[in-house]
Design a protein around this nucleic acid. Structure first.
Lengths: 206, 206, 206, 206
DNA sequence: TATGAATGAGCATTCATTCAT
DNA sequence: TATGAATGAATGCTCATTCAT
């Protein structure tokens, strides 16, 4: 029993080591350098061994995405939870989204920017009760609260998606084009959030 | 004379065929599948021939980007130019940006979403007097006008970049994750623009 | 046990086959024709397989050189060791050098005549304790003995290098230009050695 | 008539330009970098044009060899011609041979060290009355004189070939293995010549 | 004479993956 | 479970050369 247990735990740990290695390579050298061989080198096993834990490279990418979403959930769900107003709590969550992107750029890239739709199905990512599902639920709540507080009768879903898009735009544009002459990042992020969120308090435009 | 003319035209057209082929492959199969050989197959010439028209693979990517920017400039610079207010003219330009993305998804993806920063230098794209430069100038003007009209003292550069990011977010998220359960697109776009632009009229947030 | 043994032996032998194939190609068709693909064809394995045995092409060249030096060391270190005079022992070593070149022309060409300096570092060949180092040491001793016996106060190093050059000249010129109307080879070699070695006994020139 | 003449002269000059370009590339970047394309770039004509003047790359190499021999003939035939003794005149010629090798290393390499036997026939190089023939004749004379003066009854042909080999050994070994820890070059050359030539004055060895 | 267009063959190397053990 | 051996396919790119004009 305990031997089986030990083996199982070993199996778990090697599996995690593989994901860690993949992520580290991604972080250190970018997506283009992520190869089975390099993962194998890093974990000091043969490339073949990896295939005992993952079907193929895409499988690893899928689990990397899930892992990213889990970390993102950690970051977002707690961000500013104790702030005094719904507006601030929403803003904190959005800010956390942006910060997450910049603090884990390669994870963000593979999950949200890389065109993995060929390899990773959106459906499997979004399955009910999954981390993406929970993530969206949290954000819905924050948006809902803020809309109520602002007496704004916009559709929660649309507003959430638009705000998400805005945040994604900030992260992805800066990550994707690092050499563009951006204004100071902090300023740009705050301007972006200011503009996005101001809309909640404006009844009519023009 | 006419022979020279014909040859010249052939040369131009083959060059364009190469760009078209590259774009189609990039769109249909992703960057990983874009290779000189595949382009060659598609245009039904030998790989070597491509090198008569472009220095190397990166050169092709560069021209793909420039081509996109030129079309985008066409679309944006004239959009809503005759509208009565600076706000509307700015909004029209942003809307044109988004519409361009959806009407030419392949070109948009390649230029703004694909992670080509390793292959295409931002500097070369942005060189003074180039199309990107002109594009930015046009947008600056529209943003500037709108800020003046709204008596908003925000920095033109920051606002432009934030608005660009918002629009890019909308386009790239929808193009990149087509299977996500988005709200109706028109509604989402307008919501996104509403939110972004409302900020110009709000003096203080919260 | 025996299975492991068999595998190990197979590995050794394939490795040697690769070196043999490389040498044969180099000899038969010149450096320009030595490619991983041709080696692969010759050994009837895929090009990729070669990379399991050698890091890269240069690595193969390096081992080809080392292999030659080992055989040469065998030949030179024992040549005429029991002859009665230092002069004769030195002459025997030089003669063995020349004979080695003619008896293993392919190996000699690769190591001493092919312009591999771009691909094989002299430093790595000469590393202390390596076969080249031992080879030089042996020759130094023979030269030293002979100089002492002849009461010649020339520098050992210079004399060794000059004598080496003379012998190399004989071998390389004859191997490199086989169609030139050379005098009878035995005669030429002996004349060459006579001339070279006579200098040891002449106190002043002219 | 004069038009034909002018054209002919132009043809001659472009032909020479090609050889010059080839030699310069060889000199500046080594044999591996000599390609038709690079020659074409250098003379600012299309690669195709070269084929009007030379059948192929080998043909260029052949003419480069002949050119080298001509320059070598210049250098050797006049070297030390006014020196007072046959010995010194021979020594001067040998020294000139060595110096030529070091002063024009790439020319020397392609002519004497590169394995061009596949592309350039020795026979065509050696044809009677050709420059190689004249070169050999000059050297024979110097060797003959020196042998007579030294009352040495060795065969002229053997001695010439042996001395040539010695000199070639010095040049080729140093050029081919530039990173070897050679003794100071001047010293090595003089030692080499001392040893080689001393033999002429020694009646019996050992 | 000179060229632009085009090509087929070749290069070293890396990749994800399979298979027998 | 883990591996060593092996592979087929692919990569960007350069080459000498041919051909029609």
């Amino acid at each position: 029993m305990s031997i089986i247990e030990r083996k199982k735990r070993h199996k778990e740990s090697l599996r995690q080591e593989i994901l860690d290695a993949a992520r580290e390579i991604l972080l250190a050298e970018g997506y283009a350098c992520l190869s089975m061989r390099r993962i194998a080198e890093r974990i000091e096993y043969s490339p073949t061994t990896i295939y005992h834990y993952f079907n193929n490279k895409d499988d690893i990418l899928y689990h990397l995405c899930v892992e990213t979403l889990e970390r993102q959930y950690e970051a977002l769900s707690t961000a500013g939870a104790d702030l005094p107003s719904p507006y601030l709590r929403l803003r904190a969550a959005l800010r956390a989204y942006v910060d997450f992107g910049f603090s884990e750029p390669d994870r963000y890239k593979i999950t949200f920017m890389a065109d993995l739709s060929r390899y990773v199905s959106t459906a499997s990512i979004l399955e009910q009760g999954g981390v993406a599902d929970r993530l969206i639920t949290v954000m819905y709540q924050r948006v809902h609260e803020a809309l109520v507080a602002a007496e704004c009768n916009r559709d929660v879903k649309s507003v959430f998606q638009a705000l998400w898009a805005h945040c994604h735009g900030l992260v992805s544009l800066l990550l994707g084009h690092p050499d563009f002459p951006w204004t100071e990042r902090e300023n740009l992020i705050e301007t972006g959030l200011d503009l996005s969120l101001a809309g909640l308090f404006v009844k009519e435009t023009e």
